[in-house]
Simulated scan of single mutants.
Amino acid sequence: MTPRFDVIGLVVSDMAASLAFYRRLGLVFPEGAENEPHVEAGLPGGLRLALDTEDTVRSFHAGWQPPSGGGRASLAFRCEDPAEVDSVYGELVGAGHHGELEPWDAFWGMRYAVVHDPDGNGVDLFAPLPGGPAPAQ
């Protein structure tokens, strides 16, 4: 038997704010989940994104504290085309989320941008540029 990658989990400070952010990126969470301690959304390919409140984590790990300093992980969302990278970035920043890196044409052949979710996690937005790399299958 081999373990199977199944869930990406994030600890969130404000469930409602996090749900609003990820819903803007197209993820579907149950209606009325804003006051729940644990919420999941299905992802393409069968994975799940799980959001747990800080209190939920402390319920089984009493000494847990949010990390300080910069993050070492990010989530990346593929957009349909370079214009959608710009559009989604503008929508998220316009809704008050921190824009870490404005959209730019990266040397590796993609339009790229980075926005922070409500807890400061980096969320990359990307799309291949015309003539850029072919999508991975």
Rank of each mutant, 00 (worst) to 15 (best):
M1Y: 12
T2N: 11
T2C: 04
P3H: 05
F5A: 03
V7S: 02
G9W: 08
G9C: 05
L10M: 14
L10A: 13
L10S: 11
V11E: 13
V11M: 12
V11R: 09
V11D: 14
V12S: 05
V12A: 08
M15Q: 14
A16V: 11
F21K: 02
Y22R: 02
R24T: 13
R24I: 06
L25N: 00
V28C: 01
F29Q: 09
E31K: 09
E31V: 13
A33Q: 12
N35R: 14
E36N: 03
H38W: 15
H38M: 12
G45I: 08
G46L: 05
L49G: 11
A50R: 11
T53L: 02
E54D: 07
R58M: 05
W64P: 04
Q65C: 08
P66N: 01
P66T: 00
P66M: 03
P67R: 15
S68D: 15
S68P: 10
G69Y: 11
G70Y: 12
G70W: 12
G70T: 11
G71W: 07
G71C: 12
R72L: 02
R72W: 00
S74Y: 06
S74G: 10
L75C: 08
L75H: 07
A76Q: 04
A76H: 00
F77Q: 01
C79M: 14
D81C: 14
D81T: 07
P82E: 06
A83D: 14
E84P: 07
D86W: 06
S87R: 13
S87I: 04
Y89F: 09
G90N: 04
E91K: 08
V93P: 00
A95I: 00
G99W: 01
P103R: 01
W104E: 15
W108C: 11
G109L: 07
M110Q: 09
R111L: 06
R111E: 06
Y112H: 10
A113R: 00
V114T: 05
V114Y: 01
V114A: 01
H116L: 14
H116P: 10
D117S: 00
D117P: 07
P118C: 06
V123I: 12
D124M: 10
F126G: 05
A127S: 11
A127D: 07
P128V: 05
G132L: 04
P133I: 03
P133S: 03
A134Q: 12
A134H: 02
A134D: 13
A136E: 09
Q137Y: 07
